[in-house]
Structures are given as structure tokens and as C-alpha cells.
């Protein structure tokens, strides 16, 4: 897929594991990582399929704890 692509960066220890981001991500980029526990004691969100990210910002917009920083990648063929 060409066009808008992004990379979500996660401040893991700020996450409370509410999973709102997972629920609104249209491309299934994110998952709750129940293999680890963050400093707050939650299972934090993690990036499962970065290649699917379309930099739509949905995760960042819904996150109550501002854990996301989103980078936009400009694809060679796309805009």
C-alpha cells in the first residue's frame, strides 16, 4: 500500500492499558501486550503491525494519557 504511512511511538510507562487506542485503530496496528507489565503495573499497548499504520492519529486522539508520539513517513511512490 502506498500513501500516508506512520510510526507510532509509545511512552510505555505512561500507559494505563485501557485499550481505547486498540479499539479505534482502523488498521489493527496496536495490541495490548500481556506478556509484560509496565512501571504502573498495567499491560501496556504495543505496536504489533507498524507497516499497517496510516498515521491517522486515531490512537493519539483517543489516548487519555498522551502516550503516543506519531511520526509520518512519506512513501517513495506516494505523497
Amino acid at each position: 500500500m502506498t500513501g500516508r504511512r506512520g510510526i507510532p511511538h509509545i511512552a510505555v510507562d505512561s500507559c494505563k492499558g485501557c485499550a481505547l487506542c486498540v479499539s479505534v485503530c482502523p488498521e489493527s496496528v496496536l495490541t495490548i501486550d500481556d506478556a509484560r507489565v509496565n512501571l504502573k503495573g498495567y499491560y501496556p499497548v504495543s505496536v504489533e503491525a507498524v507497516e499497517n499504520c496510516i498515521a491517522c492519529l486515531s490512537c493519539a486522539l483517543i489516548c487519555p494519557d498522551v502516550v503516543f508520539t506519531i511520526e509520518r513517513v512519506v512513501d517513495q511512490q506516494g505523497g
Binding site: 498515521a55 487519555p64 498522551v66 503516543f68 508520539t69 506519531i70 511520526e71 509520518r72
Partner: peptide, 16 residues
């Protein structure tokens, strides 16, 4: 690559 979303300086570093 450019950052298109990051935490605003209007928020402190304190976790809610």
C-alpha cells in the same frame, strides 16, 4: 519523516 503528533507543552509531566 516528521512528527505529526506529540505531547503538548500545555500538559505537565505528571501522570494523571
Amino acid at each position: 519523516m516528521s512528527v505529526i503528533f506529540s505531547k503538548t507543552s500545555g500538559l505537565t509531566e505528571t501522570a494523571t
